[in-house]
Simulated assay, not measured.
Amino acid sequence: MPKTRYTISPIQTVQVEPNVYLGKASGYYDPIAKKYEMITLLPGSYLSKNSFDDGWVPENIAYLIREGAIEDKGTVYEVIKPICGTPGGTAAITQGKDGSSRPNGYKLWKFSDGKTIDEAGERPNK
């Protein structure tokens, strides 16, 4: 059986202040980080509990619960330990959308001035 590559992964504790926001989630955006480390979801953020038929989201949610990075709080998951991922991947688990409805994180994550990553011109040219 092939090993699953988790799109969203817990990381060691980080000392950063949130600089992007999406719904009930706050994160730290680093445009020069590796693709899968650009957004760090910070503790206290909430993730949607929309149900998915299959795909990477349920596998990642189960993995994050096993790793103690998120906790089931009934109607949402709460981030307990920092989690990093792509802007799109973190937006997907934050909003509970995947597949054809998977969100574009560069157009959803917003800085405190209300501009998205794209609107602020902060999207990397990779």
Score class of each variant (00 low, 15 high):
I61M: 15
S51Q: 12
N50D: 04
G68R: 02
G88Q: 10
G96W: 02
I83F: 05
T86Q: 07
G74Y: 08
L47V: 04
T90G: 00
A62F: 07
I70F: 05
W56H: 12
W56G: 09
K49W: 12
G68D: 08
K81H: 07
T75R: 14
D54F: 11
I93H: 00
A62H: 11
R66H: 14
I80Y: 07
G85T: 02
A91I: 00
S45Q: 09
N50I: 12
K49T: 15
T75H: 13
G68H: 04
G68P: 09
I70E: 12
I80G: 14
K97Y: 06
R66T: 10
Y63P: 10
G96N: 01
A69G: 04
W56Y: 10
I70A: 05
K81C: 06
T94Y: 04
S45H: 06
A69F: 05
R66M: 10
I93M: 02
T86I: 03
V76T: 15
L41H: 01
K97F: 06
V79L: 10
Q95S: 10
A62S: 07
E78H: 12
G85Y: 03
S45P: 02
L41W: 00
W56K: 08
I61W: 14
I93S: 00
Q95P: 00
G96K: 01
Y63M: 08
T90H: 00
A91M: 04
N50T: 09
S48M: 07
V57H: 02
E59H: 12
P82S: 02
S45N: 02
I61D: 11
A92F: 07
P58C: 10
G55P: 13
V79T: 03
T40Q: 01
E67M: 09
T86R: 05
T94E: 07
S51D: 12
T40L: 00
P58F: 11
T94A: 03
I83P: 14
I61S: 11
K81F: 11
L64H: 08
